[in-house]
Design a protein around this nucleic acid. Structure first.
Lengths: 360, 360
DNA sequence: TCGTGCGATGTTTACGTAAACATTGTCGTG
DNA sequence: CACGACAATGTTTACGTAAACATCGCACGA
């Protein structure tokens, strides 16, 4: 009684688009029942064929497969998800995708998840206010996801006593919430230390610093580690200049630093700002690395071609993404909330031509 | 008969993680029935409250809401999707997310889709071989999506007589399939023309060109338009140099071009390669724009800070993403396959310091 | 020759939601 | 005062899938 309209089986190949039938307003696509009817079997047998169960006689299987092809059958994942209570999907909440690190991390997450049969659902948060993040999480609750990877400051969530949807597994990137969540991140402090030590080892008396935005945990960590490294080496700590990741802000900081006669070495919290520094120093006649050395952070592909090629701290975004997926899938399979704890991916320093011993 | 385990209602806030009950292996989360039982109403009433239907008395609504809160009820989107035959999700198939254009387009898509209540599911294709793309589409067929946006060379699909899953709406970016699909893209030809004319207007006799990979339609279009523009102006067409979008390939091309005494103007198919060119010319003592002018394509944020700041063709990725979503949602609401046709987003030339009249 | 066991297939049911229909009860009006 | 209309709520059902259980028939061994 269900149908009455299987008529007009599409002989030709490319019948894309909705049901060609003008009548019924929203007849659901081809279902197992439709296939079953055409093949002259029960829908259960169709299910068995679809899922590769063994106990189906070859001739029957053939019939069913032909009927599937003929009708263009595709399994309905909603029904499947309802049946299994699983979506095979991981949600990714993030603030912005344009930033180098995020897009590369997301790509790695998507790739590794795909390899495990999971899809990725992106939940962008326009402006990382408390409300928006909360909204994303609320929506997330209704979304078809088995787990969530959060790529932003988790404290934005915490401040408002947000209760994460129970039953949703969470892994966090770029945060210090290792005491409550499963955190995977680049070892920011490690990277910053490498940058500072590299410059000190070259003979610089101290290292200036251009920070990222204050709202970024990664930025905070880098700044903190920079300060600590200097203090532990007994060096003076110059006042940090505040940037916002953009090359423009790096350029602005560079214009200021160019006027500091003491400044012989700068550690920029990312490569884009380092680029801005290079330009400012160039314009102000402070040759790099002749008078000033510059170290960046991220190792974007362009960095090797800056003028001069940039010495920078390499982040392994792929590894971060891989570990996120690994952890999340583990949580899903165990059915338990993730162990709190922080999983740090080490960095390495890529030495290029923007650093040198200080001029005498 | 359904439950027997609502016991131990979580008084405290943060009870994340799966059911604390060790017994039952996979009891689905709180359902409307559970809420209904606790609130002492029928599940239909719960549904009414959840969906904001009018005819519910205030006291009842309160009871239901309290029960929801107490149990941490979240609607099951699989059931909902099954009921409605809609997922409120758009799939995005792409080759790589790391490229500037793609990540920004995807971000725009995600943002606009979110504003319309749609989520984005990413389907990455590791290597854009026929098989992989086909696999992505097959998987897509089973995925919970109402429509698909394809950000890669559609001919990868076509060659193998791929039948797109019927009933799935498709919009394509970066392709010439306007005769069969709904295509949204940056007007590559327009951009390339602007670049060439800018250089010719400055007085250059002709313009050399560094291409992107041959597999990229965007790259092909830019090269084609570059050639056509030169021919129409009656200028000689130098042999194009082949790059692959990477700054490395631009650098390699730059080393060759630096040896061409005739070469006074170069149009690079993207900004990253232009950066490579700048470096090569700098290293080889061919000042830009003194001896050679360079124009890029994309207008990445860094471009303004290259040495020298790069004249380039600005792409409006946000607009591309917006139009993709617009088209796709239109297709969904109409329930019809998209009109074939190409929707081109114009570009504009950003003039900076890497171009100048040729040396005399 | 007659079980018996298992392979092949059919039937029933549950997953969570919400439309459609059914059942109350109350209030207003003739 | 009675009846109709409508508001509030309950009951049934379908969405597509697949596990669990039921049935049928054939082949093999005693």
């Amino acid at each position: 009684m269900a149908a009455e309209q299987s008529g007009g089986l599409p002989k030709g190949g490319a019948q894309r688009g909705g049901s060609g039938i003008p009548g019924g307003r929203r007849k659901q696509r081809v279902s197992m029942a439709d296939v079953a009817k055409l093949a002259g079997v029960s829908s259960q047998t169709v299910s068995r064929v679809a899922n590769g169960h063994p106990n189906v006689i070859e001739a029957t299987r053939e019939h069913v497969l032909r009927a599937m092809r003929e009708l263009g059958y595709r399994p309905n994942s909603a029904a499947r998800a309802l049946r299994y209570g699983q979506f095979n999907t991981i949600g990714v909440i993030l603030f912005n995708l344009a930033s180098t690190g995020n897009s590369r991390t997301v790509e790695a997450i998507a790739t590794h998840a795909a390899a495990e049969g999971y899809a990725i659902t992106l939940i962008p948060v326009d402006i990382p206010t408390q409300d928006n993040v909360l909204g994303a999480f609320t929506r997330m609750g209704e979304l078809a996801v088995d787990a969530v990877i959060v790529i932003l400051e988790i404290h934005l969530l915490d401040a408002g006593t947000v209760t994460l949807p129970p039953g949703v597994h969470v892994v966090v990137v770029d945060s210090d919430a290792g005491d409550r969540y499963s955190v995977v991140d680049t070892d920011q402090a490690d990277g910053a230390r490498r940058a500072v030590h590299h410059l000190l080892d070259l003979g610089h008396r101290t290292v200036w610093h251009v920070t990222g935005p204050e709202t970024s945990y990664a930025s905070q960590r880098r700044t903190e580690a920079w300060r600590t490294a200097l203090e532990q080496a007994g060096r003076p700590v110059p006042p940090p200049l505040h940037g916002d990741w953009s090359p423009d802000s790096g350029y602005a900081a560079g214009l200021l630093l160019a006027e500091e006669p003491d400044c012989t070495a700068v550690f920029a919290a990312n490569d884009h700002m380092a680029l801005g520094l290079l330009r400012a120093f160039h314009e102000r006649g402070r040759p790099v690395p002749g008078q000033i050395s510059v170290v960046g952070f991220d190792d974007i592909p362009d960095a090797a071609h800056f003028a001069p090629p940039l010495t920078t701290v390499h982040q392994d975004f792929t590894e971060v993404g891989r570990r996120c997926v690994e952890r999340v899938l583990q949580q899903i399979s165990l059915g338990l909330p993730g162990e709190p704890g922080t999983d740090l991916v080490p960095t390495r320093l890529i030495t290029r031509a923007s650093t040198a011993p200080p001029a005498r």
